[in-house]
């Protein structure tokens, strides 16, 4: 181990969002960072209806020496990364506990029910209040807006990975990220993804 160890084994992390936000890519990148350091990683992705407006969730189990179930037991998440704020609440309802930590992107994605005026979308103040009340620690980041400055809202997911790195909750750092994305991406794409990662780190340091 280069830097630190797991605070729990397995460490249970959930990345939640809406179809099209890059949920699966984010879980793959994080998985790659951790396998690169010799950890055993199991990822359970729920997709399929993802392109059609549905909620998407990835369960990531991280362990020193064993593979775990692709479904985290109820109430056992250590960290929730929500790419969309109401998805944080949806996940907390099933997998939350008083010790959970939450990294939350604040940009809403309205469902059809909200768009057509049948359902109400809560205010950001209420969302923050609920999430804080249901977690040991929570960070609220405007990752999508920051990502648009990099040219594409999709970088929001990488920024959230950077933010995770910044919290120090997992024994991974920028080098691990660079190594993981360099395996799959062209050098110019690696640069912009590194920029997104760094912005994410800064967001939780501030």
């Amino acid at each position: 181990m280069k830097n630190g160890t797991l605070t729990s084994d397995p460490y249970n992390l959930i990345i939640a969002g809406v179809g099209g936000q890059g949920n699966v890519l984010a879980s793959r990148v994080l998985g790659g960072m951790l396998t690169g350091k010799g950890y055993h990683v199991t990822i359970g992705d729920t997709f399929g209806a993802s392109q059609r407006g549905g909620s998407v969730m990835s369960h990531i189990r991280i362990s020193r020496d064993a593979s775990w179930s692709p479904q985290i037991p109820k109430g056992r998440a250590h960290m929730i990364i929500a790419l969309e704020p109401t998805e944080a609440l949806r996940v907390l309802a099933d997998y939350g506990n008083p010790k959970v930590q939450v990294l939350c992107n604040t940009r809403p994605i309205y469902s059809v029910g909200v768009i057509c005026g049948e359902l109400a979308y809560p205010s950001l103040e209420d969302l923050e209040k609920w999430v804080r009340g249901l977690s040991e620690k929570a960070w609220f980041l405007d990752a999508t807006n920051a990502a648009m400055k990099l040219g594409n809202p999709i970088f929001g997911n990488i920024m959230m990975i950077g933010a995770l790195g910044g919290t120090g909750a997992l024994p991974v750092d920028r080098q691990d990220f660079e190594a993981a994305v360099s395996r799959d991406m062209s050098p110019d794409r690696v640069q912009v993804n590194l920029a997104a990662y760094d912005m994410g780190v800064k967001m939780v340091e501030g």
Binding site: R52, G53, G54, L92, A93, G96, S111, G113, P122, L134
Partner: peptide
Amino acid sequence: YAGRAQEAGFVGAPGRELT
């Protein structure tokens, strides 16, 4: 905790109907 989490999820996370 479970009660509060369920309630927040119910009130705060409007359903995402497939479309």
